[in-house]
Structures are given as C-alpha cells and as structure tokens.
Nucleic acid binder design. Structure first.
Lengths: 340, 340
DNA sequence: CTAACAAATGTAACCGGTTACATTCAGAAG
DNA sequence: CTTCTGAATGTAACCGGTTACATTTGTTAG
C-alpha cells in the first residue's frame, strides 16, 4: 500500500497526496477530503524509510550515557524523551560503561543520527572535535573533561552545590569534614571538590588533604574509601560524599565497623537517587534537577536542528539541599577547637 | 560523496561498488582493491537512509520497558544491546512508566522498527495481538498479564524462585512469614505469590491471608505495606518481599518503628539490585540473570528476523538465592509452635 | 582458433516518498 | 466572451542505494 495507490484511489496525483499528508495549504478543501478518505479506507501509512531518504533526515538523535541504571542519568534521559518524542524524534541510546570502544563513531559517520546529547564525554577537546565533527551536539551534565566553550551545555553549578553541603555541615557545628569523591578527570568531580574546599574556607576551616578520598563514583568505591578512612588515626565527624552511591557505600563500611550514622559521623550525599530517602537513616543529599536538565538539553538540540539561534550557550540549573536524617548537630563542647 | 562518485573514481559501475561493499564474491580481486582504494581516498561512507530504503529494513528494534532506572530492566536492556549491536541493529528504547499512552503504536504502524522486545506488556492477549500485529516480538521477563503461547518469551521460574526464598527462611526456623508483593496483574506478581504459598505448604505451614500485603513494586509501596503490617497485632518473624525495592521500603518503615533487622524480623528480597549489597544489613535476595535474559531475548528476536526457526518457544533461566545478613536463625524456643 | 560457458561487470529499473517546474483550472476584470 | 492571474494539480526528476537482467570478458575444451 503505497502513495500511488492512494493517489489512484482518490483520483489525484501523488504530489497532491503528499501535499495533503504534510499539511500543505495549497490544496482545495474538497480534494483534501477525498485524499484523507482514501488514506482512511486503504489504511495507508507512509513509509518512514522512504520519507527519511527524501528528506535526508533520520529523525533520530543519539544519547550517550555512562549507564542508564544510574538514577541521575535515567532521569535526564527521561527528560530528553519527554521533549524529543513530542517533535517526532526517536532516540538511540548508547551506554559507554566508561569504556572507549563504543559504536558511536559509526552512527555519526553514516548520519544515522541528526544530533547528539552527551551525558558523558571523557575526552579531550581535540578528540571531541574530531569525533563529532559536523554533528550538532549538546552536553548535558558535568561528566566532561572540560566545558567546551563552543558546544552548548546544561548542568548545575557543582561548586555552589558542594558549598551548600559543606555549609550545612559546618553550620551544624562540624569542624572536621571529610570528602569522598571521584578521581575521574571530570568537571563534576573537580568542581565538587572545589566547592568542598571553598565551603571549608568560608567557615574558616583548613583543608586537610588527609581527609580527601578519591576513587570512582560507585557504591563499591564508597565502601573502600570509607575503610581507607577508618584506617587513619584521625576520624572526621562528618563526610561530604560527591555522590549518593559513594555515600551509601561509605555508610555500609562505617556500619560494618560499628560507626553509627549520624551519632558518630554525619554524612551528606549528592544526587538524591530514589533509595536515599528509604535508607536508615534517610540520606541528606543534594538534588539535581535531572529531568529538567534533560528537557533543557533536548530543547537546545532541537533548536539547533531547527536552525534557530540558542538563547544561551551554557545553561546552569539550580541544585537543592534535601535535609533528612543522616546528619546531627554537634554540641558545643564536642567541637574541640577554638575554645573561647 | 555518493556511490556514483566512488564508481567514477574507481572506473567501475555503481553495481560493482555496491557488490564490493557488501562483500559479494563475484568481483575480481583486482577490482575489489580498486574500489576499496577509491572508497578510502574519497572517504566515502554509504548513506544509511538510502540503504535502508532499498533493503526495506530499518535495522532498528524496539525495546519497551517500564522504566530503565530499575536495575533489572537496565540489565536486561544491556544484555539486549550486547547482542543486537553486534549484528548492526540499533535499539529504540521506550519507557512506559506504566502509562498506556506511549508512542509505540506509531513506530510499529510505520515500520520504523523491525521487531520488538517487551519487558512489560500489561495488556490482554487480544489487545496485544491487535497492537503488535505482524511484528516479530519476544517477551522478556514476566511483566505480562499472561504468558502468550504463540509469542516467544524468556524469563525465570518465579514460582521456584519464590519457593527458594521461603524455603530458606523456613529452614532458619521461621514459622510466621509475611509476603510483600505487587497487586499488579502480572505473571511475575502472581507467580511469586504462588511460590510463597507453595513454600509454606512444603514446610507444613498454613497460609495466613492477613500476612499477605500487596501494593506496587516501589520503595514507597514497601514502606506503606510494612506500616500496614505493623498496625496489625500479629507480627511475623520474617518477610519475603517480591522485589528489593519493596524490601528496602519495608526496612525503612520497620527501622523507623524500632524494629531491628534481622534481630526482630528477617527479610529476603527479590532482584538483587546494586544497593542491596551495601545496605545495613546487606539484603539477602533472589538474583535474576538479567543480562542473560536480555541476551537470550535478543538472540531469539534476531533468529526470527533472520527467518530461522526458534529452538525453544519459552526459555526459563535459573535464579539464585544470594545469602547476606538480613536473616537470622530462630532459636528453637522462639518458634512457638509444634513443641514436641 | 573458435565454440561454449562461467565469471565479471554494467545498465537501468526500483524502493516510496518529496518537490521544482509545468500545466490546468476557476474566477475576476475588461 | 475573452484575457489574465493566481490557485490547484500533475509530471517527472530526484534522494542514494540495491539488484534483476543484459552484456562483456575470460577460460577451457574441442
């Protein structure tokens, strides 16, 4: 059942059918109805493959993600879907698992996709330019080596977010705050560390390198880093973990060693993944507006694909501190420093 | 840069170029080299859109999933990717969020996809037949209303898996075991309940309807169901939760009310999602071979697309009990029944 | 050396839409 | 009743591959 059949049935030419189907105005009302009736009666559905070839567009965009099982990424993905599906685009989702050998290059070379949204791009700017040459790209999140000036991006202000976390802990009276982060060479990792340091400074606290622990973003890593920390003589009274997974892994190790949360150590995470609320104690954490990040990134990509001008090259959305039960207020006497 | 250009450059016809590119044997070695050289030098990449139209195939398959953030689903998805990418297929992933208004019908009607793998199909057999008429489909997992005899499927034996869990608890001496499940009208939900009941019978225990709680699959639901349970006079000494999320939600509610795990109540979950290992206490649970489920389902779909015959219509993979620290052995005196 | 046949290559139709351009048509103006 | 004009419609080329079939080339046997 192709367009010629419809045309014949309706007694018009294929051009007319095509016009009606794409909503061209230059068709008489009567003709339009004839065609629509034919389409209806023949149960005609246009062939997407043919249409795509004619239009030279695939109506597909690429989304590159470290792993979808991660709540932040899956929410961003969800946000992307929300807006691109609306516009008739489909997304091809590729998980990198932090490996480099993905099938991405192929999809780009052969123009299977019209554009891409990267939730992760752990590569140098040169490598990036080489790989995505000519393809409209939007960077979502902060999983990058560098913010690439010439490429649109949307993320949160990680420095500020981390400062909020430290600020909160310091205001509870904590003077000795450890940092659990990722050694990965990403903006997010670096900025959260920077925010941590800033936060300490703002409260007149010194940065103690022996309280900074860096590994991966994983649960497992959180577990190991906390154990590492426990091996040191000096225990902090609070921890700022750069991801909820790190926090949860750390709590696991701490509990195993009989350290109580929050009685002995307070902890705040980052991401607000779903389980965090149902942990015991429920995890205080920083929430990223993940869905909006995805929506905004998709908006921007579609704007580019539509040859419109972007209002803003780099969008920063707001993060939020979610206070739950994993932190406690220090009593004055416990502080152990600056006794007036 | 199109095939004609390559043909001209190499001094052959487009047909020959096409043959070389698709590995047709009927080409002289010398010619083949000429063509390959031209392709190389002109940096030619075939146009996928054109090829797809010619071949009348999109090289895309559809995967329908309730939500990817769920660890089980994302692993299955991962398994699918593993095998289909290998064969040059891309997957279009649709999350239903248990809503009905997805864009699936469109993708199917216009043949954007060649086949589908459903991780969820909460619809009647008629509805299913209507919706996927003519499209090769494989069902992965047990998120269905009914096993559809005429449609290939791969899953685990939920009844058996649930029996294992109950068996384990009963062997630890538990006589009063509650069930937390989903009210959803899915095979998985029903079979896990059935397995629970079977397990009780096998150990000479009676099914007590007041110990069966059903809600959704979510963390939140686990939390509510556990609270509901706490309101009753009769407390079980153990709980079998039909998903880790339910278990974690329940633990949250229990802890909030001062019930200790596993001292006061033992609990075993289902799914073995990543955090389960890092909970305190670490959650004993049933593991599904999610990645393999995905791989097998993809295998089967590709077999169908390749017009081969399936070896088996319905594949069942093995589940495994992962013992951690959320259960304890009852002392003889505590059992309170059948005192000899 | 040529017939006979297989292997290699070329030609052109085809996949099913879109659209530039040509043609026809209807209504208004003269 | 023409003529003119813009709207409506049709014709056919085109998107860039694939492939049936035709043609040419090469090989072997007689």
């Amino acid at each position: 059942m192709k367009m010629r059949d419809v045309a014949k049935y309706a007694g018009v030419s294929v051009a007319t059918v095509s016009r009606v189907l794409k909503g061209d105005d230059n068709v008489r009302q009567l003709t339009k109805e004839k065609v629509l009736k034919a389409v209806e009666e023949l149960n005609y559905v246009p062939n997407t493959l043919a249409r795509n070839l004619s239009n030279m567009q695939s109506k597909k965009i690429l989304v590159v993600v470290p792993r979808v099982s991660n709540a932040v990424f899956s929410s961003i993905y969800h946000g992307i879907q929300n807006v691109v599906n609306e516009k008739g685009y489909q997304v091809i989702l590729i998980e990198t698992f932090n490996r480099r050998d993905s099938s991405v290059p192929e999809l780009i070379r052969d123009r299977t996709v019209e554009g891409a949204i990267l939730l992760s791009a752990m590569m140098s700017e040169e490598e990036f330019a080489e790989k995505f040459k000519g393809l409209p790209v939007v960077l979502a999140t902060d999983n990058l080596r560098e913010r690439i000036q010439s490429t649109p991006s949307v993320s949160i202000d990680n420095v500020l977010a981390a400062e909020k976390a430290v600020h909160y802990l310091a205001n509870l009276g904590h003077r000795c705050i450890a940092f659990l982060g990722s050694r990965s060479d990403s903006i997010g990792a670096r900025e959260r560390l920077e925010g941590y340091k800033n936060g300490l400074h703002q409260h007149g606290l010194k940065v103690d390198e022996s309280l900074i622990f860096e590994g991966e973003w994983s649960l497992e890593s959180g577990y190991h880093l906390a154990n590492q920390m426990l091996f040191q003589k000096k225990l902090p009274t609070a921890i700022f973990a750069a991801s909820d997974n790190l926090a949860i892994g750390a709590i696991s190790a701490l509990s195993e060693q009989g350290v109580r949360i929050p009685e002995d150590i307070s902890i705040v995470g980052f991401d607000n993944i779903a389980v965090s609320e149902y942990l015991t104690p429920a995890l205080t954490t920083i929430e990223q507006p993940s869905v909006q990040i995805g929506e905004k990134a998709a908006d921007m990509l579609l704007t580019i694909l539509d040859h419109q001008l972007l209002e803003q090259m780099h969008v920063e959305l707001n993060s939020k501190l979610i206070i739950r039960n994993s932190c406690r207020r220090m009593k004055y006497l416990e502080r152990g420093d600056e006794p007036k």
